[in-house]
Design a protein around this nucleic acid. Structure first.
Length: 283
DNA sequence: CCCGGAACCTGAAGGC
DNA sequence: TGCCTTCAGGTTCCGG
C-alpha cells in the first residue's frame, strides 16, 4: 500500500527519468482513473508539455508541467502551467518503460524520446487530476510529518480534544498527511501507545514519543525504499525492503521483539490493526 | 466541527 | 476442481 515513504520513493526514483522530458502522447485505457477534466481534455491538455518538477504532498504525487507550444496558448485554448496529480490508493503503480501490454495498464504517458510511463492499477481505486492549482486537491491535508514545522507542539495542539482512537486520528489525512495503516501501527508500537486510546487523552510523554516515532518510522521506511507487503512496486519494477524491519504491521502471531509475546490483530475503525497488548497498554 | 460506518473495487485466500 | 465467501484498505460520502 503506497503511504508516504512509498510515494516519496516513487518520486525520488521517477524524477531523473521524467524531469525535462516532453510528453508526445497520453492514452487513457480506463476512464475511471481520470477524475478531472474529461478523458479527451486530459489527453489533449497533456500532449506537448514538458515535466518541469515532481513533488509529493501526503500520498499525492504532483507533476509540474510547462506550457506546450509557447505563444500558441490562446489559439489552442490550453492552460499555461498545469499540475498532474496522482493518488495511487491501494494498488496503483507507476512503471517506467514497462511493456505497454502489461496487465492492468490504465494510463500510458509517452515521451518524445521514446521512453514511457505506465500507470497500472488492478483494483481501480487510483485517481489522477489535471489542475491549474494543486491546492484545489491537496489544500485540506494536514501537516507534512517530515518538515520542520511538524513539532511536538503542533502534534499536541492538534490532538487536543479529539475523542476518536489515536489510530483513527493518525489515519485522518487532514490531521497528518501521508500516514497510512502500516506506519500508524509501527509508530504506535514504537511509542508504546494502545491504538484505541482516545487521542485527546495522550499524556505529554506519549505525545513526545509518538512524535519521535512518526519521524523515525517514516524516515527508516524511506531509507529502505518503501514496504512491499502487497502491491507496491517501484518504477523500475523492484520491491522495497522496509517491511523486513516492521515490528508489528502484518505480523499477527509473530512475537513482539521487545517482550516476546504474540502480536495481536484487532479491528479499529474498520482497519486491521496490529499491536502488542503487553507493550502498548491503555492508560 | 467531530465521529463512525458504508461504499467503492477486485485479486487472493480460505472453506467446503 | 470449482464455486462461494471473506478479506484487504485510502478516501469520500453520509448520517448523527
Amino acid at each position: 500500500m503506497p503511504e508516504l515513504p512509498e510515494v516519496e520513493t516513487i518520486k525520488n526514483e521517477l524524477a531523473p527519468a521524467v524531469i525535462g522530458r516532453c510528453l508526445a502522447r497520453v492514452a487513457v485505457y480506463d476512464a475511471k482513473a481520470i477524475r478531472q477534466p474529461s478523458v479527451e481534455e486530459f489527453e489533449r491538455q497533456l500532449a506537448g508539455r514538458t515535466v518541469a518538477s515532481l513533488g509529493r504532498r501526503g500520498k499525492y504525487l504532483i507533476f509540474g508541467l510547462t506550457a506546450p507550444f509557447p505563444g500558441c496558448l490562446q489559439a489552442a485554448s490550453l492552460d499555461p502551467e498545469v499540475s498532474l496529480i496522482v493518488h495511487l490508493k491501494l494498488t496503483g503503480a507507476l512503471l517506467m518503460n514497462a511493456p505497454t501490454t502489461r496487465k492492468y495498464g490504465k494510463v500510458l504517458f509517452e515521451f518524445d524520446d521514446g521512453s514511457r510511463l505506465l500507470f497500472i492499477d488492478p483494483r481501480r481505486f487510483g485517481r489522477m487530476w489535471l489542475v491549474a492549482d494543486p491546492a484545489s486537491i491537496t489544500g485540506k491535508l494536514g501537516p507534512e510529518p517530515l518538515t520542520p514545522d511538524f513539532t511536538i507542539e503542533t502534534l499536541a495542539r492538534r490532538l487536543h480534544g479529539r475523542q476518536a482512537p489515536i489510530k483513527a486520528v493518525l489515519l485522518d489525512q487532514n490531521f497528518i498527511a501521508g500516514v497510512g495503516n502500516m506506519y500508524a501501527d509501527e509508530a504506535l508500537f514504537a511509542a508504546r501507545i494502545h491504538p484505541e486510546q482516545a487521542a485527546g487523552d495522550l499524556t505529554r510523554g506519549q505525545i513526545s514519543r509518538l512524535h519521535a516515532a512518526i519521524l523515525s518510522v517514516l524516515s527508516a521506511a524511506i531509507a529502505n525504499k518503501g514496504a512491499s507487503t502487497r502491491d507496491y512496486i517501484r518504477p523500475d519494477g523492484q520491491l522495497g525492503t522496509a517491511h523486513f524491519s516492521f515490528n508489528v504491521a502484518h505480523r499477527r502471531g509473530e512475537l513482539c521483539p521487545v517482550c516476546r509475546r504474540p502480536i495481536r490483530r484487532i479491528v479499529v475503525r474498520n482497519r486491521g490493526t496490529y499491536f502488542c497488548s503487553h507493550c502498548q497498554r491503555r492508560r
